[in-house]
Design a protein around this nucleic acid. Structure first.
Lengths: 340, 340
DNA sequence: ATAAATTATGCAATCGTTTGCATGAGTTTA
DNA sequence: TAAACTCATGCAAACGATTGCATAATTTAT
């Protein structure tokens, strides 16, 4: 019942030394300062008594929390779970704990979250919620806490970020479609205030150019969110144009799912009548009807690399900012086919 | 550059009072002890200087961390993201932060995680990884830190848990199949050392009984994990029996996806030749081919309720343990059909 | 054998709060 | 007007670790 914790002093008393000696034994850096014999004794008592350091006291003294804050838009968004997994595994291996928070794309939630993180003195931040221009980023830069952006980058130059190479992805998609004989390709663009939406759109345009195709402005619809609903709306707009196109390339897989829905509602067969491509290769994209051709972005690695860069920055804050673009892969499934 | 934090003392000096007075103003419970006039002044200076309490110092003194640890098997398992969302939203609203850790079903990882949580003095634990009989649970009970089990319960009586009512779910599924004329129903069971696997199997048996059907032992295959691969293996075993059955009911949606794969490989049409049912209603279960008939378990609520119970327990540890079973819903989609 | 250099350990201040107790000013009562 | 009470505020001791400095013990050099 008496759940009184064991402290350094308790251990010290039992062994008959001073608490500072125990502290030194437990800290690898100072371990060599104390005699082997005493150290062994201390270590065994530490084990016997089940001593566990008090993280608060340590943090208070050392001003390090071994805690990192991670901000994502929504935990249930299938793209973010793998990212967090990557972050978590990497940081855990280095003794850090991860505090996750969803901001649901609400600026005020984003702000309050970062405040909370500061109160808890996180050693660093990983931000996967930022817009291309985001006051949060200035804020964080001023504050001085190390941070890294993941998946979504902002326009600020001297901020580290880890993203997938959206441009290359766009090229691969268009080139694939072109090979299948598609010429008139519609694009369902994600939000342009997010780097993913913006860059992927640029990738599409560049891909068209490289393939010697002309991008028809009418066949590009911009969405305000990466959601199925926006994908449906966009598709119905495209269909209403009554212009000819043989493929729809969507800014991400969720939008593509919306495209599926709307096409099906119109009795159009994906992959046969019209080819559809997504982006992200979210979990179970291979289970959809039809299995979705999409660009696989290495989400777990994006998270892992972001964590690694953050660790570097925590260890040495003078390290210059850098941007890592991971190479994506085109995954061809049956939602794309030769144009008839 | 000089990122020196503002402390209570700094504020006190500026106002010309003692730091304890500032502390009292900031704490709602002691706020009334100090004169309105001074309090106002303090509050305004607090704001001006951008004072933020040092969570470590507070926690060290009060022995409360306002932090909760959550253990899940795998962040990328689609069933667990909604649960964490429910937990996170509930706890965040009460000023708590959530530390998540994946244990990947490894006992040693589970153990080290709980150690880590203890070092960080979490105020409570939510465990979604426990087996029906799990030494971890005894361990946690002894330790005395409040904890609640989510999704997976253990056999221990006096442990609080929040789960979905698996038995009712099983009844609904079998009754649905029976109405469609199915009599010979195969069951692909999840691991029996997990409450979900065990209870759902019991639900199946009970459902068969209630429907006046006989459960053929040969048509039950037990899996070691809730994975697609195990689902595939189980299905190939069933097919190898060369016994007649018209429906396969799987212990969860991932198993059901494995069933899909294997049936398709054998040229059998889900929903037409053989009906398939899952359990969980994981995200995008409606997008599969065919859309999956399954039992919707209110995962976000499971997480939310678990968090709520934990908060109660943190506030008053004498509260008796209780188990909450949330009602699931049958979601009929096109993977089930009338028997021909 | 003694001084000097080298250890190993203890001492005590510190990190930023919270909180029981002491204190002094102001108010009430006789 | 002095005694008895309030009441608001300050004082100082925690909480449990870390760490520069002092000191005692030991070794080495002369």
């Amino acid at each position: 019942m008496t759940k009184t914790r064991v402290t350094l002093k308790d251990v010290a008393n039992k062994v008959g030394v001073h608490s500072s000696t125990v502290s030194r034994v437990l800290n690898p850096k100072t371990r060599s300062m104390v005699t082997e014999e005493i150290a062994d004794k201390i270590l065994s008592v530490v084990k016997d008594m089940g001593y566990r350091p008090n993280a608060f006291a340590q943090s208070l003294k050392t001003n390090k929390s071994f805690t990192v804050g991670v901000m994502v838009p929504d935990l249930t968004n299938p793209a973010f779970a793998p990212i967090i997994k990557g972050i978590d595994d990497m940081l855990e291996a280095h003794g850090y704990s991860v505090i996750v928070a969803s901001t649901y794309n609400l600026p005020e939630k984003q702000q309050s979250t970062v405040e909370k993180f500061r109160e808890r003195h996180v050693d660093g931040l990983i931000i996967a919620t930022a817009k291309r221009k985001d006051s949060l980023i200035d804020d964080c830069r001023q504050e001085g806490t190390p941070f890294v952006q993941a998946v979504r980058a902002s326009v600020d130059a001297d901020v580290s970020s880890v993203v997938s190479d959206e441009i290359i992805g766009g090229n691969m998609v268009v080139s694939h479609l072109a090979q299948l004989g598609h010429k008139r390709i519609a694009y369902v663009a994600g939000p342009q205030f997010l780097s993913t939406g913006y860059e992927r759109y640029r990738g599409f345009l560049q891909g068209m150019k490289n393939a010697g195709l002309e991008a028809d402005k009418d066949l590009v619809v911009f969405c305000e969110e990466f959601t199925e609903e926006e994908g449906r709306n966009a598709t119905s707009k495209l269909l209403a144009l009554r212009k000819k196109f043989t493929a729809i390339y969507a800014g991400n897989d969720l939008l593509a799912l919306g495209v599926y829905d709307e096409l099906e509602a119109d009795g159009i067969k994906c992959g046969q009548d019209i080819s559809v491509v997504g982006f992200d290769d979210m979990p179970f994209a291979d289970k959809f009807n039809p299995p979705l051709t999409t660009v696989h972005t290495p989400l777990v690695n994006v998270g892992g690399e972001a964590a690694r860069i953050l660790l570097e920055k925590i260890a040495d804050s003078s390290i210059p900012a850098r941007t890592i673009k991971l190479k994506p892969d085109l995954i061809v499934r049956s939602s794309t086919g030769r144009v008839k």
